[in-house]
Nucleic acid binder design. Structure first.
Length: 359
DNA sequence: TCTGGGGTCCTAGGACCC
DNA sequence: TCTGGGGTCCTAGGACCC
């Protein structure tokens, strides 16, 4: 059996650990530039505030309803995430850290799923202050579904285990395709056009059809929904393959020189990250785009991939390449709203290890 | 005025080689 | 009519995730 532990409205919960006055209050957390709402408490959700909503559109509403509004503090969230993960590892070392607020682990036959889930939930809350919900099922994808139920049905008290195929079937019949883990908006729209609206319908489709019409990944998702484990369980967190720094600019930018400054800063910061991780970048991608949200203005987006002559973490080299790429994709006369630099740093091996360079 | 940032995996197609 | 075929590596782009 697979167990998925998912922290409840994680960013809000982190803030509450350090400011208990926020308990029971409606709270929202804003994205980097205070651009949009990236997390909200149950109380805020109950007011009808949607996830991802642009802050400026909701500012007055939030004020009127006395919603606490906080800028995000990723250093804090990273810290608490680490504590939650470490707590879990003391009870079960076979953990797969899936994201900042989710962790998978496997359960042996002998354990009572519900009792184990309750035990973990209580320990994490007591040791870290973070509330979690727990889903338990025969596959990771089904554990996701169970976790959703655990959050939704108050009577379950945060722990939901799928212990029979009847129970699984019943849940999949009411699960819309767009809420299946691994099926996004694009695929879900496509499926609906074909008359497939629920997870139960989806999993019963022909294998060849799923593979050809969607993807091999979607096929694996179907198997998982049928109860056949088809996703890997990575106990060892794989090394990152790429590092991204990208930002929406506060104001639209027209001039190349301004963009050059910004892109150079991103590139320089990435070399710091590389050296911290003791990695070398083999290539770099720089991208640039105008706003998605201005249908009347001309849209332009472009990206360029450049490979270094040899893997590097040397700031001047990376900055020079980033600038060179930028100059090639830059077009006069557009209002640029977002840009970024991605460096790809392949998994570690002996020859690619970073060693001190005069920098 | 103002709409997030950081990731993964898969595939099709081109370049190159024998 | 038909112009070699197969393997491998790389990249761009699309789909998805939190």
């Amino acid at each position: 059996m697979y167990v998925l532990i998912d922290c409840d409205h994680f960013y809000v919960s982190c803030e509450r650990v350090f400011n208990p006055k926020l308990n029971g209050q409606p709270v929202v957390i804003l994205s980097n530039n205070d651009g949009s709402i990236v997390d909200r408490s149950n109380e805020a959700k109950a007011l009808g505030i949607p996830m991802g909503a642009p802050y400026f559109q909701w500012r007055d509403f939030l004020k009127r309803h006395h919603v606490a509004v906080l800028s995000s503090n990723y250093a804090l969230y990273g810290d608490l995430s680490f504590q939650v993960m470490r707590t879990l590892e003391t009870f079960n070392p076979d953990c797969e850290i899936y994201s900042i607020d989710e962790i998978f682990l496997t359960l042996s036959e002998n354990d009572d799923p519900i009792a184990f889930g309750r035990f973990l939930k209580e320990k994490i809350k007591r040791w870290t202050g973070i509330p979690v919900s727990i889903g338990i099922a025969p596959t990771k994808t089904l554990a996701k579904v169970a976790n959703r139920q655990a959050k939704k049905l108050y009577s379950l008290d945060g722990v939901c285990a799928f212990l029979s195929s009847e129970q699984i079937e019943k849940n999949l019949e009411t699960l819309p395709t767009e809420d299946i883990w691994g099926i996004g908006r694009r695929f879900s729209n496509f499926l609906q056009k074909k008359g497939i609206y629920t997870a139960a319908q989806f999993k019963n489709q022909d294998d060849h059809w799923i593979r050809n019409a969607l993807s091999t990944k979607a096929l694996r998702t179907a198997w998982e929904l049928r109860g056949i484990p088809s996703l890997e369980f990575d106990e060892m967190r794989p090394n990152k393959h790429s590092i991204v720094i990208s930002r929406s600019f506060e104001h639209p930018i027209i001039k190349l020189e301004t963009l050059e400054e910004i892109i150079s800063t991103y590139a320089a910061r990435e070399t710091e990250k590389l050296r911290q991780a003791k990695r070398l970048a083999s290539s770099l991608q720089v991208f640039l785009m105008t706003s998605f949200h201005k249908p009347r203005e001309p849209f332009y987006a472009n990206a360029l991939h450049l490979t270094f002559s040899e893997p590097t973490a040397y700031t001047p080299t990376v900055v020079a390449y980033a600038k060179m790429g930028l100059q090639k994709i830059f077009r006069e006369g557009y209002f640029y709203k977002k840009g970024g630099v991605i460096v790809t740093a392949p998994p570690l091996n002996n020859t690619m290890c970073y060693t001190e360079t005069p920098d």
